[in-house]
């Protein structure tokens, strides 16, 4: 038998936190080494908000609640959620790339629990999405949003929860996939409507019938609603802040659970 042996000081297992940390770290490093992605983070939020907001603002003027709010103002929380949605989901495309490039295999053969893989990857995407969302908040004073210290803290929390939930959702979708094309198909089919029906573009009160019902069961609605309540405390809201944040929290936990279950599924083929 081999006399090669593991030095006694070496740990038997890596635990959860160290592998999760290192996977998180890799996501961040990879991100800032891809310059196009960094540029996209800074510029795309501004562009989306101004182009979509201005365009819709002039065409939809009559649809506004009581007419006291400019559409660019109304659209601000929605734009924030869109930015988070895109960043969260797209970072998880790296799951598919990791699998195809063979990198994931070397993680899977290491003595690392699946929960650490989910946690590391999802927290990596969450960090990037939340950071991008927070960068966008720099423009908040331009639309007359003045956050108190407390409400800023709650905005950060909400942004984090939305980022985490959507990244976990992205992970769960990406895990069993082998091509980025099919991932794009799912985004268009499923995630864009999720955003459209979240109250980001038009208010809940303006929708009717089945549309309204869909918006009520859409978990993203509560994220948008929470942000809007925090940013415009004076404007009318459908749900209380506590109800919105608690629903969002439940959604986040559910999504993480889903990502965890997907990663632990036994596959007949490797």
């Amino acid at each position: 038998m081999a006399t090669a042996s593991i030095p006694a000081t070496y740990p038997q297992s890596a635990g959860v936190m160290l592998p999760a940390f290192t996977l998180w770290w890799r996501e961040i490093v990879r991100f800032y080494r891809q310059r196009a992605r960094v540029a996209g983070v800074i510029l795309s939020p501004l562009l989306f908000w101004i182009v979509i907001g201005s365009g819709f603002g002039t065409s939809f003027r009559s649809g506004e609640a009581a007419g006291q709010q400019h559409y660019l103002d109304y659209f601000f929380p929605g734009a924030l959620v869109m930015i988070i949605l895109f960043t969260s989901i797209f970072t998880m495309m790296s799951v598919i790339e990791d699998r195809n490039e063979g990198f994931l295999l070397s993680v899977l053969v290491a003595p690392v629990p699946r929960s650490a893989i989910v946690l590391g990857k999802v927290l990596g995407g969450t960090t990037l999405a939340a950071l991008q969302g927070l960068i966008f908040l720099v423009f908040a004073p331009l639309v007359g949003i003045h956050l108190t210290f407390g409400s800023f803290g709650l905005v950060v929390l909400t942004v984090f929860l939305i980022s985490f939930a959507l990244t976990a959702l992205g992970f769960a979708i990406a895990w069993p996939m082998d091509s980025t094309q099919s991932f794009h198909a799912i985004i268009n089919l499923f995630l864009i409507p999720l955003w459209l029906l979240s109250g980001a573009l038009f208010p809940l009160s303006g929708a009717s019938g089945w549309m309204r019902a869909l918006m009520y069961i859409n978990p993203l609605t509560y994220g948008v609603e929470a942000l809007r309540t925090l940013m415009y405390p004076a404007a009318p809201s459908t749900f209380s802040l506590t109800a919105s944040i608690l629903t969002l929290l439940l959604f986040t936990l559910f999504m993480f659970g889903l990502a965890f279950v997907m990663a632990n599924r036994k596959k007949s083929s490797s």
């Binding site: 940390f21 290192t22 996977l23 490093v29 990879r30 063979g102």
Partner: peptide
């Protein structure tokens, strides 16, 4: 593995640093 499993965007040192963490 037969296929590449190193991360080309990381340096040689970083790849091994990452790998070491996976093994505690």
């Amino acid at each position: 593995f037969q296929a590449q499993s190193v991360d080309p965007k990381l340096t040689a040192y970083e790849n091994l640093w990452h790998q070491g963490h996976l093994y505690g």
